[in-house]
Computed example of a mutant assay.
Amino acid sequence: MGEQSSDGGEKAAKAVKRTAAKRASTAAGSAEKAAAETPAEAPAGTSAEKATAEKATAKKATAEKATAKIAGPVKKAAVARKKPAAAPEKATAPVRKAAPAKTVAPQPPADESRTALVRRARRINRELAEVYPYAHPELDFDDPFQLLVATVLSAQTTDLRVNQTTPSLFAKYPTPEDLAAADPEEVEEILRPCGFFRAKTRSVIGLSKALTEDFGGEVPGRLEDLVKLPGVGRKTAFVVLGNAFGRPGITVDTHFQRLVRRWRWTGETDPDKIEAAVGALFPKSDWTDLSHHVIWHGRRICHARKPACGACPVAPLCPAYGEGETDPEKAKKLLKYEKGGFPGQRLRPPQAYLDAGGKPAPPLGAG
């Protein structure tokens, strides 16, 4: 039994050795075959790999170039789009800084108190009183009747035209009784140069009849009586009361309305409301002279279309400074009193109203 086991073990060991030897031989043969094949195939494989690598590299370079071409303008466009985004910020800053420069002259604050308004209005009147010390009605008259008729005729025409017309009218009809009995056609012919001569003829003949019949041929000295006469309103009545009877009144004509709104004394447009608003700013004793000062200034300097701001004595007190010509030399050419002047004028040269920097100087004598 023991011998048989020993023989079996030896047989198994020999079988294992044979198997291992066969495997080793097979492996060696495969290695030799691989070694024999490798030298012939290696060069071809290396060349192909290089060619493929070069082609891939070329394609990659081409793709990168194409990408660069496309990416370049995109980046530039992106930068270009960013610039406009930043532009409004740059443009906004100077506008905000420049906004205060719009104020070219001292202007009353939006919330100007009543006291400040009264003081400013009275300073303007004092300055105008220095400039126009002999301001008066620019209609020629010898008595209240002539002033009443001349004032009615001055509607929609100039005082100069009225002054050229009334001498012949009063020479032929010197009293209310004479004019009340006049032939309308003859009066129309005299008044034709004044414009609206038919309507004005009816007014002057009508008021002459009313004076003759109701007031004994005398012009009444009360407002309530004057406004009852044909063609006579509050403006005409105040002209007569202030200049023929010495009773204070405010004359709200077109010049007066324009200037008091420019000066922001009132925002009213109705003549009666303007009269009340402005009258509340001044003592009653100043009303008649105030009317003359404002009207004279409106006719000579503060014109409707192009005021001569550069020659205005009240420029520092005017909220509307800059609406007209501010250059002193150019403004001087706009002054209507330069053509012939007028009695009693005491106007300072335009330069006297400006400081060294060319801006409006404080009014002389204003306190």
Rank of each mutant, 00 (worst) to 15 (best):
P176M: 02
S285D: 14
A28E: 13
A105R: 00
G340Y: 02
V252W: 00
L117T: 09
P319D: 13
F238W: 08
L160E: 10
R264V: 05
Q345E: 12
A78E: 11
K50A: 14
K55I: 15
R348C: 14
P271H: 09
A155H: 13
R247G: 06
K336L: 15
E186G: 06
T266V: 01
G344L: 05
Q164F: 05
L207I: 00
D253Q: 02
E41H: 12
A15F: 05
A180Y: 03
A129E: 15
G298R: 01
T212I: 01
D178C: 06
T103M: 09
T212K: 06
W287Y: 08
I274G: 09
S203E: 00
H297L: 12
R96P: 10
A366H: 07
K339W: 02
K11C: 07
S285H: 06
P39D: 00
E325Q: 11
I250L: 15
A71F: 11
A181L: 04
A361V: 05
P94K: 13
S113C: 06
L160G: 10
G322W: 07
R122V: 03
R234C: 08
K60V: 04
A361T: 06
A244R: 00
Y353N: 06
L335R: 13
R261D: 04
A87V: 14
H303F: 07
A280F: 02
R247L: 12
V240I: 11
P283A: 13
A356G: 04
V278Y: 04
R299I: 14
A237M: 02
P363G: 02
P39Q: 01
A85C: 08
E268N: 09
R348G: 13
D272Y: 07
S291L: 11
I205Q: 09
